[in-house]
Design a protein around this nucleic acid. Structure first.
Lengths: 145, 145
DNA sequence: CCTATAATTGAAAAAGATTTTCATTATCTT
DNA sequence: AAGATAATGAAAATCTTTTTCAATTATAGG
């Protein structure tokens, strides 16, 4: 199987890696391209299996190492679900949050600006200085209902 | 070290276990009591170490098995943090959510009723039927600021 | 274009965490 | 108090992730 076609987001990510001093290698291109175009969360192993289709000699270690770099650069994010915390998706930007379909796994982003006021009220009540938040919704997408 | 003193919540949990057909054993009592009175998230191993202080023959397997049962009964919940998803805390009830101190690990619950309206607007916009949500805040508690 | 340097790769081994297996022990019902 | 059966803990087995290391490859500089 030929390597997947380059996508705009994938190219952006490759540039980001290069600008951080990382080299662009064939295995890396394949992994980046798959992650940049995935619609549902992938585990390192699933990513490895997909990657092998176009890069048969790909090693699982390389998948781990590339995910690590992509996460470090804020390109991908780890997805936390009740039973599985080891899957990855393209990173949300700004105040975006994840909405996951419990049936098909599709991931959608939604905007969460409107919650800042609420967080401030929690800060007041608890005395905490809030520095980060995590919001994820789970449900069924239009197709799966 | 003698076993920890019984706490109201601990007793409640033991009753819940018993009513589900599980037996009350010495190792189980120790594990339940520790979890029922913990203020910050514990890993299975940390729980094991604590448990051994009063139950030196305690096995790590028993810790895992007891956590599993407590989670199944909704007594404890797994805590998800950016880098670690394998710690446990007494479960939040109803619409409560977690607020964690990034410095000392203290866990506080806060109420999240006010967000239902927001979730409904997300449902409308995305076409999803939302069935569950996850909200966690991270910051510094009053002491650690 | 060719070379030197240093990063990257993948296989294998190591490390960690969790689960399974199984003989022994302890709880709970009768 | 005895029997049935659930629970325990040691050890082995699994699984995932990380480390090690020799071979390969990308990139900068000539």
């Amino acid at each position: 199987m030929p390597p997947p076609k380059p996508s705009p987001l994938g190219d952006e990510w490759l540039t980001a890696l290069q600008e951080s001093g990382y080299r662009l290698t064939a295995p890396r291109r394949v992994i980046v391209e798959i992650m940049a175009s995935c619609e549902r969360a992938l585990s390192p192993l699933a990513l490895f299996d997909l990657g092998r289709k176009s890069q048969p000699r790909l090693g699982l270690v390389t998948v781990y190492r590339t995910l690590e770099k992509m996460e470090e650069l804020g390109l991908v994010q780890r997805v936390h679900q009740p039973d599985d915390c080891h899957m990855y998706l393209p990173a949300a930007r700004g105040h975006q949050h994840l909405l996951l379909c419990q049936n098909c796994g599709r991931a959608v982003l939604f905007d969460g600006d409107e919650m800042t006021a609420f967080f401030e009220s929690v800060a007041e009540k608890t005395g905490f200085a809030i520095r980060d938040h995590w919001l994820q919704l789970f449900g069924l997408c239009a197709n799966c209902q």
